[in-house]
Structures are given as C-alpha cells and as structure tokens.
Amino acid sequence: MNEVLLLHYEIRGGDFIHAGESSGHVKNILKRLGFHPNLIRRTAIAMYEGEINMVIHAGGGTADVKITPEQIEIRLADHGPGIKNLDLAMREGYSTASDSVRELGFGAGMGLPNMKKYADDLKIRTAVGKGTTVSILTKVSRNQG
C-alpha cells in the first residue's frame, strides 16, 4: 500500500458481546494489506487490550486508526473516570476490575503492561474525572516477535 488509511470506531461501554470487534476488524484489514504477521498480531493485541479497558473501565469511547506503509497509529479516547495512579496501573498484576470482569478472564492487571510489551511506543494521557487517551504505535521496521 502507498496511501494512508484512516479508520474510526465507536466502542460501547459494558458491551462484552461486541468488545473486540474493532480490533478484529483492524486485524483483518492489516492482513489484507499484507503486513508482516508479527506486526499484525502485536498491533491487534495492543488495540484489543485498550478496547477491553475502555469497555470495562471507561464506559466506552472511540478508536481512531491510521495505517501507513511504515507504521500503525491507534488512538483510543474515552471520557471515563481516568487512571488515578498510572505508575501502579502499569505494574503487572495491579487491577481495579470487578469480580464480574474477572469471571470473563480479564482483570489480571496485564492490560497496560501487555500494551507496552507489544507496542513500539505507548503514550497515555489521563486525568481523573475527565478521561484517558491511549496512543499506540507499531512500526513495520520491527518485524520480529
């Protein structure tokens, strides 16, 4: 591909039936465009973790994806409660998820650490009571893993 592809998704809070559809859609588009499988997986997992976080914690939000031949940028924005302690939230095992979320297999405190692990760059801007914006960048140049 040579051009820039822009995608926009509305993500509904608390909807665990459709949570992940946006990430699945992006993954399929990246496959069709012929990106490296490892890049596709890294991007899809990082976005999926962010999408799930918005569904669990933030009452939903929006996802904007910019695909270029060199990189994929994902911006997840919500108007949820914000993250009180970002350093704690980045630690593996720390979670504020409810028991009902844990019963779905999430809430292990791996969401943000996983996003950091799979992204080439992760930026989080958050304000308590106002919301959170997560920016994920994956680069084509990192083909391995």
């Binding site: 665990f16 779905l104 996983n114």
Partner: peptide, 24 residues
C-alpha cells in the same frame, strides 16, 4: 481461564484449553 495471560504469553498458533465460554 485468564485471557490476559493468554494475550501475554501464548505462542504461535496454539490450541487454547479453557473452562470459559464467553465471546471474549
């Protein structure tokens, strides 16, 4: 049964054994 762990540690093209039956 912890999908977060699967996302963190699963390998290439595996089988997943689980007791969970939700869409996630």
């Amino acid at each position: 049964d912890m999908m977060s762990d699967v996302l963190a540690f699963a390998k290439n093209q595996p089988v997943l054994l689980t007791g969970l039956i939700n869409p996630q």
